[in-house]
Design a protein around this nucleic acid. Structure first.
Lengths: 139, 139
DNA sequence: TTCATTGCAAAGCGTTTGCAACGTA
DNA sequence: TACGTTGCAAACGCTTTGCAATGAA
């Protein structure tokens, strides 16, 4: 993640305490927090971080391609810092848990040109839905 | 779509003018309207349709499995009446246009059990993103 | 010093809900 | 007639924005 901070600095980002904390919160694997969760964890480290700043910072990280927005349900967006390795998401229909997965095969290869209707297809997002072990045990 | 109305009646649905209009608006291929667009088209046919009724009716159609909610962006949900044939979506990054597509291959087959982490995977959603011919020409 | 960044609070958008009036079965 | 359905309007959750104060470079 220090990589991230260096990349941001190299892009001329003005590095503030708030931005550093937001970036740190997003560190780690399988992190898919909502903006509100990011705010909660950020204020735990640094009380003076406003919601607006969290939204601003997340939006900028997304624009920079460092973080990806994931809207798994109709609820709040989640932010996925694992933008540099292609992966897909496994979402629990019960509790909303999200896991990163790395399927074999390229989904793009499954879409023949006859089915592209002239679109310049750039990417494919795959979301697998099911019950996580915990929720399956309760059901 | 008359099929739909008959299915609904068979399920004991109380058939009101408002519900019929909402169902009619959703008729046709490649229809992916937001709740607000459904409301606009519904009131064009029948002025006395409230937003609340549109939301209620859409929610019931989703619960009945006749319509599928699609959240392509972080904005308003869209409603896809093509629930009876497996298909995926091609979304234009420029204008938001959505097309149904029917890829070859089953995405579920691309997720080996080692990548399922104990999840009981039930379904896979695939969204292809790119530029439609119109937006590609402008870019 | 300067100008981007911040915090606050209010507004915005899409959606849901409470409740009285309504209309289908 | 009875009970499910409707419309209105207010409340809601999440996100964005205006503006004055702040602070990194």
């Amino acid at each position: 993640m220090s990589d991230l901070l260096e990349r941001l600095r190299a892009r001329g980002w003005r590095l503030t305490a708030q931005r550093r904390v937001v970036a740190e919160v997003l560190d780690g694997d399988h992190v898919h927090l909502t903006a509100d969760e990011v705010h909660a964890r950020a204020t735990a480290r640094l009380p003076e971080v406003s919601r607006a700043t969290v939204y601003n910072t997340l939006g900028e990280l997304v624009a920079l391609g460092e973080v990806v927005e994931v809207s798994t349900d109709g609820r709040a967006k989640r932010y996925d810092p694992n933008a540099h390795r292609a992966h897909q998401h496994l979402v629990c229909s019960g509790c909303g848990l999200i896991r990163d997965v790395h399927p074999t095969g390229d989904p793009l290869a499954d879409l023949p040109s006859a089915e592209r209707f002239g679109f310049a297809v750039a990417a494919a997002e795959v979301t697998y839905r099911g019950l996580c072990p915990g929720c399956a045990a309760k059901a």
